[in-house]
Amino acid sequence: MNPPPAVTPAGAAAPAATPDSQAAHAARADHHAARRARGPDMGVRAELARAALVAAKDLRIEMRSLDNVPAMFFFALLVLVILSFGFDFSTAKFSDVGAGVLWVAFVFPAVLSFGHAFALERDGECLSGLRLTPADAGTLYLGKLAANIVFMLAMEAAILPLSAVLFGYDLAPVLAPLAFVIAVHSVGFCAVGTLFGAMTARTRRGDVLLPILLFSVSVPLMLAAVRTTSAVLNGGGLWDGLTKTWLVMTCLFDLVFTTAAWLSFQYLLEE
């Protein structure tokens, strides 16, 4: 049995200081001080710029590969078609049941998109790459959120006119308030979806878990979305009684969950 190998203490002893090495040491100290002064850009504006960079990166990748938005569009279209088999739109008025149909068509593809956002980072371990940059976790969340919002809005912008054609309702008079209602609710959905998307990217059966978590937490948002969309489709205004209350709740939801997600994202990314 061999004697155990000698373990040398960590870190060799520093060589005796000579005038040369002292000068070199001083030079290094100066160099470090200079580098310290010139740190990475910090502060709110720099973090927002980094969030924008992350979002732009996702958009650029999507524009080259077209992996996400076309798939979302076709899925939404399919949902519209399937739901139209369920309701008889020759007798039912679109403005009665249309809100629900539209929102189902919007949220199901969005769920796919949220999963895709982090699957994108899994290839090549890019999430580690992002975590190595000076950006903090909240910034990464905001960047991903912005990209998700753009994708969802793009899909909705394409589907909405199509739904007017398919279901024969008049879009033009209600377009402005409808667009606002759809946008403000989509933001909230993306806020929660981006958070849970990051979580479920690293669990088993993440593809199934994401909709489960997302839809249960987003119930208030869905209720508000359908109610306000329905009101607007029926010609109501945004400031009418209950619609206003719903919209206030939605804005509160958006704010609370975006903030909560932004603050807690670091706990999701760390290892």
Partner: peptide, 21 residues
């Protein structure tokens, strides 16, 4: 953390690169 991360670099197996760019 930001200051430190800006001064170190990691070269990992997987490249930390986006295939789609």
């Amino acid at each position: 953390p930001e200051w430190i991360r800006s001064r170190l670099g990691l070269i990992a197996h997987s490249g930390l690169l986006y295939g789609g760019m």
